[in-house]
């Protein structure tokens, strides 16, 4: 028996918004410690890794490890039926071929349940090594979304260049060039407004706008985003999900541009 009840059901709706453009389907690996999802996009350029810890749920029970292959378009349709203040429970029997979503309104006057068929997915899981990154940049997530959106007008790629002075985002194309420099903030009233750069060595890498823009669909999950870069390895774009977990996107760099 698997059952996970999330009082802040809106978080699950936001998680869905954050992955559904990138992935058509994904396996939710449910275990005693929580729910994990790892999947590559169709082009195998990026990878999504979602971690929801059991402690973040109001009620969590997972008697046996369970892999639930879900069509994300179907799951998204179902989650759209939940109100933002609904409590959401996911449940499934052991070896079941369906999952049930139960939505409870805060005062319990409306309870809906939706059963969805599971699909067998044969997805490769990749081992992601623990890495010390040369540059770790924290910035407001809305600022990052704005930068990606603005620079996408100029070309297909964004160059991210991190030095001890700060971080520079650049794009170039037919209409011209664009550069956005962010300096590390000295003092801020709110920590979520800060730009912080932790640099061991300068790094410059080029990434496809298309994917960065899809990652920014996670912006409503967290006021801050963390970018981790090292030479010639994938970028990590991480959004914390309150005290329940995180969503990380890994993006392979463009080379020879």
């Amino acid at each position: 028996m698997f059952e996970a009840r999330l009082v802040q059901g809106a978080l699950l709706k936001k998680v869905m918004e954050a992955i559904k453009e990138l992935l058509n389907e994904a396996s939710f690996d449910c275990a005693h410690s929580g729910i994990l999802l790892q999947a590559m996009d169709n082009s195998h350029v990026s990878l999504v890794s979602l971690n929801l810890r059991r402690e973040g749920f109001d009620k969590y029970r997972c008697d046996r490890n369970l892999v639930m292959g879900m069509n994300l378009s179907s799951m998204s349709k179902i989650l759209k039926c939940a109100s933002n203040d609904d409590i959401i429970t996911m449940k499934a029997q052991d070896n079941a071929d369906t999952v049930t979503f139960v939505f409870e309104s805060p005062k319990q006057e409306k309870i809906s349940d939706y059963e969805m068929k599971l699909t067998n997915l044969d997805q490769d899981h990749l081992g992601i090594p623990e890495t010390e990154y040369s540059c770790v940049i924290k910035l407001p997530s809305a600022e990052f979304a704005r930068i990606c959106r603005d620079l996408s007008q100029f070309g297909e790629s964004i160059v991210i260049s991190c030095t001890k002075e700060g971080v520079k985002f650049s794009a170039a194309g037919d209409i011209g060039t664009a550069n956005i420099k962010l300096a590390q903030t000295a003092t801020v009233d709110k920590e979520e407004d800060a730009v912080m750069v932790d640099m061991q060595e300068p790094v410059t890498l080029t990434f496809a706008c298309k994917y960065l823009n899809m990652f920014t669909k996670a912006t409503p999950l967290s006021p801050q985003v963390c970018l981790s870069m090292s030479p010639d390895v994938p970028l990590v774009v991480e959004y914390k999900i309150e005290d329940i977990g995180h969503i990380r996107y890994y993006l392979a760099p463009r080379i020879g541009d």
Binding site: S43, D124, L126, P129, L251
Partner: peptide, 14 residues
């Protein structure tokens, strides 16, 4: 997309 590397070339399959 020209010059785009694949994520699977950086991480090994489990």
């Amino acid at each position: 997309m020209a010059g785009q590397s694949k994520i699977s070339s950086f991480f090994s399959s489990k």
